[in-house]
Design a protein around this nucleic acid. Structure first.
Lengths: 145, 145
DNA sequence: ACGAAATAGTTGCTATGCATACTAAAAGGA
DNA sequence: TCCTTTTAGTATGCATAGCAACTATTTCGT
């Protein structure tokens, strides 16, 4: 078995390629791929807390905090201490952030279409299911340790 | 379409999960996931140049250089200026690096088996093919720009 | 053979991912 | 109510990913 044949390596390389391309696509909007993910979630539902976003994206709260600060610097969101829970930081999309949505969101969907070109719905579904299995297997391996 | 449903996001999250687990697995060997990739390639063929490794792993030469320096610090490889091409840096596995192979390589294969548990050979093959299609689609999108 | 172009590597910068350690606030139990 | 535990967020440090700019070397065209 060659190094390049491990499935984790193939997934890793595909991911790198995708991330690299997305980064390039977003450059004109002054958004990084991960910052864009946060914006996408906020466009769906404004006012989410950093913690909520971290859970949804399965990311470390540390990173979300940093990205949120960046997004505030770029004036795409406002960070407001929660009214009910003073610890929580809610993120609200600004007018500028709202304008981004008009161009970025369609571009994301076009990109997704380009990536899945010549891949049937069944094949895509199979991919999702296999990835889910891998996720499950890794989680179980973790639990056993 | 929800944010979490983009296929690139699913791939990204699976990759993160895999990388995180591999990192944990390698901790006892004082190897990081990417450093391990370099070692795996060197175990297959010693004396590769940094450039060769970068091409094979489809990574930036910058990172390979930095990881190679780390690996030299840890005394797993020696870095030697190429004889024919003075610009090239060849990496050679040390005795210590060779000893690692005995334990790391089997562990990698066990890990791969755990990750692909309950996934048939056909399903795995389908996954590889779909990932290859995605890679191709991204490359083509890049070329068009 | 000489100058231009390509190539291998290095350094610096930014963004991410994750671990650890910390603060402040909220929740829960005796 | 008081005290412990949990939770949201922040700060810091290391490993990674990739871009840009740079040096040194090699190759190629004429």
């Amino acid at each position: 078995m060659h190094t390049e044949d491990f499935i984790s390596i193939m997934i890793h390389q595909t991911d790198l390629k995708l991330t690299s391309f997305i980064k390039e696509e977003l450059r004109e909007f002054n958004l990084t791929p991960e910052q864009n993910l946060i914006m996408m979630l906020l466009w769906e539902e404004d006012g989410r807390t950093q913690n909520d976003i971290a859970r949804r994206l399965q990311k470390d709260k540390t990173n979300i905090a940093r990205m949120a600060v960046q997004l505030e610097k770029k004036q795409f969101v406002r960070r407001v201490s929660g009214v009910e829970d003073q610890r929580a930081m809610q993120l609200f999309v600004t007018e500028e952030g709202r304008q981004l949505q008009e161009t970025v969101r369609p571009k994301a969907e076009r990109f997704n279409a380009a990536v899945t070109k010549d891949i049937s719905a069944e094949e895509l579904k199979a991919l999702e299911q296999t990835l889910a299995k891998i996720n499950k297997n890794v989680s179980e391996s973790l639990r056993k340790e």
